[in-house]
């Protein structure tokens, strides 16, 4: 409900916005996809991944390399990016899913560092810390070039809407209920006859795939890919978006993404102490709305 309202409102006001706020809204749309993908793990399955930037970044690098070195177009970049991210998640999931709680956090962190290390050190492929610049936006053979801010915003918005619809369907499906069951009680799920490992693994892979989708858009949006995109800070920020907005609700992480993108870009204009303010907001949310902003709105204190 809120999501549809927000999407329609965003689409309606976009043409009246100057280009800078528009690019920020575009960023919100992309980050919302990333945050929602993580929410499938964190909010629905109860798996706090600290390595989500790995799949996001893998896809971004795939696009960066293919688009600059092979002049790959829209479909190749999209498919390759999402597939590679999914494959990375499928591989890492084999290692990570055995762990639970803090150990899961640590192992996903470590795996994320592996990808960061590759991005940083595999210089012949990734250009190391210099990053890959000049990644062109795709040509969709539309009357509008995606190089301009407004068409690209609509492009990102449609992508976010599609991702939201897909993840929403997943969340409401029998499979989505299974994931929530795992979040609530693994032992009971096993006793009922669920292969808990398999369902967690599937959630992990699907989540990685959607993170990859966001990564593809990110590479096009920035026109640039660097190890920063796969580093820990990016994973942590994504986790915070989910926690801030409300895990277990897809609109929550999207809202969290909006809050963080705007906080980062507006508060920092007025004060150099913006990190402090961001920190205060996080602490405030943890203390007063542990289920996120949306969680607090939905269920007033009894």
């Amino acid at each position: 409900m809120i999501g549809v309202g927000a999407l329609v409102a965003a689409a309606a006001v976009a043409p009246t916005l100057p280009s800078y706020p528009l690019t920020l809204l575009t960023q919100v749309a992309i980050m919302a996809i990333l945050a929602m993908s993580l929410d499938i793990l964190l909010g629905y399955t109860g798996l706090p991944s600290l390595g989500h930037a790995a799949y996001f970044g893998t896809a971004a690098y795939a696009v960066g390399i293919l688009a600059t070195e092979r002049q790959a177009g829209f479909l190749t970049c999209l498919v390759a990016g999402v597939l590679l991210a999914t494959a990375a998640a499928a591989l890492f999931g084999l290692v990570a899913i055995r762990a639970t709680g803090t150990y899961f956090l640590m192992i996903t962190l470590a795996l994320g560092m592996v990808v960061w290390g590759l991005a940083f050190r595999w210089v012949s492929l990734t250009k190391g810390d210099n990053g890959i610049a000049g990644v062109p936006r795709p040509d969709l053979a539309l009357p509008w070039s995606l190089a301009a801010p407004l068409p690209f915003f609509y492009f990102a918005l449609v992508a976010a809407a599609l991702a939201w619809a897909a993840l929403g369907t997943l969340a409401r499906s029998p499979f989505g209920l299974t994931l929530q069951g795992i979040r609530e009680s693994e032992t009971r799920m096993r006793a009922l006859g669920y292969d808990v490992w398999l369902h967690k693994y599937l959630a992990f892979v699907i989540s990685g795939g959607f993170a990859g989708f966001a990564g593809v858009l990110w590479a096009w949006y920035n026109g640039f890919v660097s190890p920063v995109d796969v580093q820990l800070v990016t994973s942590v920020e994504t986790l915070l978006m989910v926690a801030l907005g409300g895990p277990g609700t897809l609109a929550g992480p999207a809202l969290g993404a909006a809050v963080i993108v705007f906080l980062k870009n507006f508060v920092s204009v007025y004060t150099k102490r913006w990190l402090l303010i961001l920190g205060a907001v996080y602490i405030g949310v943890i203390l007063f709305a542990p289920r996120g902003v949306l969680g607090a709105l939905r269920a007033p204190r009894r």
Partner: peptide, 20 residues
């Protein structure tokens, strides 16, 4: 539900106008 939608729309509009 309506309450949330209202809050969200207000926030969004406020953001949009301040940006514009």
């Amino acid at each position: 539900m309506t309450r949330i939608r209202l809050v969200a729309s207000v926030v969004l509009l406020a953001l949009a106008t301040s940006l514009a």
